[in-house]
Design a binder for these strands. Structure first.
Length: 434
RNA sequence: GUGGGUGUAGCCAAGUGGUUAAGGCGCCGGAUUGUGAUUCCGGUAUUCGUGGGUUCAAUUCCCAUCAUCCACCCCA
């Protein structure tokens, strides 16, 4: 028999969440839910599998061609594992469009799949918070979404100097490409890609990319002029386009709300997804060890309409759990894993299992988180177990205590031990744990 | 998809072409059968990622492969 052993490794680019990691994940998501809930957003979810075509149309060539997990099902349907949530959201909204009361404030924390080479901050399966606001045309929607993002970061204890939201406008970029620079379709794509890279490469390398894209020196100069211009100068370069007006109104509002310092206009923010139509933004970590985007999002006014029933404008963003976790680690914002149990009910000897269970039931019904010892071990082992788990209190009833209707309570944090009468036990324990 | 680094116990690791493969943490057991986090003692690697080759001899050298990390590509 040369049977090869089954590997215990998780599939490439995926993670096992053992209880400690799961607790961290829960902690993170609970924080997010709390902030989002404070804005009135409701949670939804959809299937992990969708028709392949849902992504083929608008998600972007690279994701569809190279990063989509897809297969043909037993009924010959081409199926994909969701690489992002927004198409599912759009589908769900389109399906019920007329009946949903607008605006919609929805969020979800789906697991998403992309066939990629794993590296820092990127895996094949990740969980991504998606927050979307649908049914609002004006930039007030973007302003609210940005506030949600900022408050989430604050909720984790991040300082405003730790991160920055960079903001651009898709339509503004399109206007510049088409009307000012007069680029054709293929040039537009190459130029957009070059702009996306601009912050990471040398200025000469950027110019080379533009030349390779077929730009004349004049076009390059004009583009440079645009890219480095402050927002207020943009209007002079490409006219008072809708994109320009949106941005002005957006920044006016954001400044009035006191959120200006964390928001910055940046013409380099392009975003890869094809469905964005208006303001786009990314939230960056400013820590030198982790300079990367934590969130990305923007306005997608035509996505719901793709399904042919109703048009519905939308604004939203996604944030990956992997990148958020890196942010929290780098900035020291992850708390110690807290004990999940308040009390261990010890088992004095095997014959006392019923008393042990009764005591544990009594304490649980009073609202404590209680673990009970099910198999007799030496008492030293039982206390050791409690200590290693971080359980603060051990409650034990041996023959001596039972005679007096008492239990012995030891606080492992202080080492203090006391006998407490059953009548006072609940109050006494509550005081200890307060 | 391209280039580079690394694979020795659950984790962190030292090590050498030649008898039994350091050490630390953790885990298990004991000293201490009514009391933990201290101390002491003991136990914890028979595929040194996997397969093949060179050799009298390979954990060590060579090749392949897989995994993992980093950079690129792209993105979250």
């Amino acid at each position: 028999m040369t049977e090869s052993k089954l590997s215990t490794q998780p599939y490439k680019g995926t993670r096992d969440f053992y209880p400690d990691e799961m607790q961290q994940r829960r902690w993170m998501f609970d924080h997010l839910r709390q902030v989002i809930g404070s804005y009135g957003y409701q949670e939804y979810d959809g299937p992990m599998l969708e028709p392949f075509e849902l992504y083929a149309a608008k998600t972007g060539d690279e994701i569809v061609n190279e990063q989509l997990y897809s297969f043909v099902d037993r009924g010959d349907r081409k199926v994909a594992m969701r690489p992002e949530m927004t198409p599912t959201l759009a589908r769900m909204v389109a399906a019920k469009g007329q009946h949903l009361q607008k605006p919609l404030r929805w969020f979800s924390i789906p697991n998403l799949w992309r066939y990629e080479r794993p590296q820092r901050g990127r895996l094949r399966e990740h969980w991504q918070l998606n927050v979307d606001l649908l049914g609002v045309e004006g930039v007030e929607a973007e302003v609210e979404i940005i506030q949600v993002a900022i408050d989430m970061m604050r909720g984790f204890g991040a300082s405003p100097v730790d991160f920055e939201i960079q903001i651009n406008h898709r339509q503004l970029m399109n206007d510049v490409f088409e009307q000012v620079l007069k680029l054709d379709a293929s040039q537009t794509k190459a130029v957009a890609r070059a702009i996306d890279k601009r912050a990471k490469i040398a200025p000469e390398a950027f110019q080379t990319l533009l030349s390779e894209a077929g730009c004349s020196p004049e076009q390059i100069a004009e583009l440079e002029n645009f890219l480095t211009a402050p927002l207020l100068e943009i209007g002079k370069i490409c006219g008072e386009s809708q994109g320009y007006k949106d941005l002005i109104r957006f920044f006016d509002t954001v400044n009035a709300l006191g959120l200006g310092p964390v928001c910055r206009f940046n013409t380099s923010i392009m975003r890869g997804l094809d469905y964005y139509t208006g303001i786009v933004f990314e939230l960056f970590d400013k820590h030198p060890d982790n300079r990367r985007a934590l969130f990305g999002g923007g306005r997608y006014d035509n996505l719901v309409g793709m399904f042919g029933q109703t048009q519905m404008p939308g604004v939203g963003f996604g944030m990956g759990d992997v990148t958020l976790m890196d942010f929290l680690k780098v900035h020291g914002l992850l708390p110690e894993v807290k004990a999940h149990v308040d009390i261990l009910v010890g088992l004095f000897d095997a014959e006392m299992i019923v008393q042990n269970q009764q005591l544990a039931r009594h304490l649980r019904s009073a609202g404590f988180k209680v673990e009970s010892v099910l198999k007799h071990q030496k008492l030293g082992k039982q206390f050791e177990l409690a200590d290693k788990r971080g359980i603060p209190l051990v409650v034990l009833q041996g023959p001596d205590e039972a005679l007096l209707e008492q239990v012995s309570v030891k606080d492992l944090r202080t080492g203090a031990q006391e006998n407490v009468h059953m009548e006072n036990l609940i109050d006494w324990l509550q005081a200890q744990l307060a």
